[in-house]
Amino acid sequence: MARQRPGGGPSTPATVALDRAGIAYSRHPYDHDPATASYGLEAAEALGVEPARVLKTLLVDTGKGLAVGVVPVDGQLDLKAVAAALGVKTVTMADPAAAERSTGYVVGGISPVGQKRALPTVLDDTAYAFDVVYVSGGRRGFDIGLSPTDLASVTRAVRARIGRG
């Protein structure tokens, strides 16, 4: 079991990576309902923030490996836009089991930070409209808040318009 840290929430690979990188972030544990239809919208409601500030981490298959798209929870990932941002012809959504194996996280708790292997990452341009955005902290019911610039830095993400409402 992950150990609890001051400020609430567990210690996860995401929090360890942020601590090591010296990046300021906030911890936001909340009671997760396993029956929820949308993990991201559940997080937005639990955190009391608009869904556009809460980002979901989606893995895609480029045909040569996996990559990450990070978009608001109230939108969808534009596969053509992600492919263009990654410089490949096409992408498809990654198999959930492959996403879990690659990241070390479970679906619904996949963080863009602290994955087992660093994957090419694209952060949706809309994230930069906010001082703080929220992403999974590495488990269901636990989000972390940080600046989009810091998120891009720690994940080495490129910035592109990859979401659609």
Rank of each mutant, 00 (worst) to 15 (best):
G141Q: 06
L41D: 13
G40V: 03
I144N: 03
R140D: 03
R20V: 15
Q76L: 14
P72C: 06
A14G: 06
K64N: 12
T57W: 01
A46R: 15
G145Y: 08
D131Q: 14
D78Q: 07
G7C: 09
R117C: 00
V49D: 01
R53M: 15
A43T: 11
G63S: 12
Y39R: 07
Y25P: 03
Y105S: 06
P29H: 08
K64P: 14
R164A: 10
G141E: 02
H28V: 08
R117V: 10
V122H: 13
Y25K: 08
P34Y: 01
V154H: 00
Y30S: 06
P10A: 15
R161C: 10
G138W: 03
H28L: 11
I110E: 02
A17H: 04
A98E: 13
G48I: 08
I144D: 11
D19F: 01
R20K: 15
V73L: 05
T12P: 00
S136K: 04
T103F: 08
F130S: 13
G163I: 12
L119W: 00
A84M: 10
D31N: 12
F130R: 13
A84Q: 07
V154R: 03
V132C: 14
P112V: 01
A21C: 12
G69N: 05
P13K: 01
V49G: 01
V154A: 04
G69K: 03
R156G: 13
P72R: 01
S147H: 00
V82T: 10
D78H: 07
L59G: 06
T57N: 05
T121C: 12
G137R: 07
R140H: 01
I23Q: 04
G141L: 09
Y25H: 07
Y25C: 14
L41Y: 06
G69F: 02
P120T: 02
R53S: 07
S147T: 03
L119V: 00
G141R: 10
A160E: 10
A35M: 12
A127V: 00
R27K: 05
D95I: 08
V154I: 07
A21V: 11
G65E: 12
R101C: 01
L151Y: 01
S26I: 06
K80C: 05
D19Q: 14
